[in-house]
Simulated scan of single mutants.
Amino acid sequence: MRKLLFMLTITACVAIISPVKAYINVSGIIIVQEKQYKKINVSDIPKEVLDKIKKQYGNYTINEAQKADDGEYKLILSKDGIDNTATFTSAGDLIKIY
């Protein structure tokens, strides 16, 4: 019972602290990273996707672009010296800003 409570506590801490998913199996904790992004040039984003993003966030500057294997984009957007990270679908729809 103590071992189970310890494993649950560690799993909760890992889930809160890092952007990874943690799973428990019989032998211990397995940590699986959610998604890998690779840095790309902004010009590598398809024009129709970039146009859709700029339509909503045209007053932001895109400082950095990254792309996941499934086509999802992670962009570093800047406005008035403040950076925001946003993820978009492969079609240019907003998923999340953080």
Rank of each mutant, 00 (worst) to 15 (best):
K39L: 10
K54E: 04
D70C: 03
I76F: 10
G28F: 00
T9I: 14
N41T: 09
I29G: 00
V42S: 05
Q36R: 10
T61E: 13
I17V: 08
Q66S: 07
I17E: 06
I24V: 08
I16M: 11
G71T: 11
N63T: 06
A68K: 04
Q36L: 11
S18T: 06
K74W: 07
T11R: 07
K96E: 07
E72F: 01
P19D: 13
I97K: 11
S43H: 04
A12C: 10
I62C: 02
I62G: 01
M1E: 06
A65H: 02
I97T: 15
L5R: 13
L94K: 09
D83H: 11
F88R: 01
K47F: 06
I29L: 14
T87Q: 05
A68I: 03
G28L: 01
V32C: 04
E64L: 14
I17G: 09
L4T: 13
G92K: 06
I76C: 12
S27F: 07
V32G: 03
A15C: 05
T85S: 05
G81Q: 06
P19R: 02
S90G: 05
P19M: 03
K96R: 10
D44T: 06
E72A: 09
F6Q: 09
L75D: 01
L50K: 11
D93S: 02
D69E: 14
L8Y: 02
L5N: 10
K52Y: 01
F88C: 01
K38Y: 09
N59E: 13
I40A: 04
I29H: 09
K21P: 01
Q56R: 08
I82L: 12
S90P: 00
I17T: 09
T85I: 12
K96L: 09
K96M: 04
T11Y: 10
Q66M: 06
K79V: 05
K47Y: 09
L4D: 08
Q56N: 11
K3P: 01
V20H: 09
D93N: 10
A15H: 14
D83S: 08
Y37K: 02
K74S: 13
P46N: 07
V49N: 01
G71A: 08
V32Y: 09
E48H: 13
K3M: 05
L75E: 00
Y57R: 04
K79W: 03
I30V: 14
S18D: 03
K39W: 00
G28V: 05
A91K: 14
F6C: 12
I24W: 12
K38S: 09
V26F: 15
L77F: 11
K3H: 14
N25G: 08
I62Y: 08
F88D: 01
K3L: 07
I95W: 01
V20K: 04
K35V: 14
I82C: 04
L77C: 04
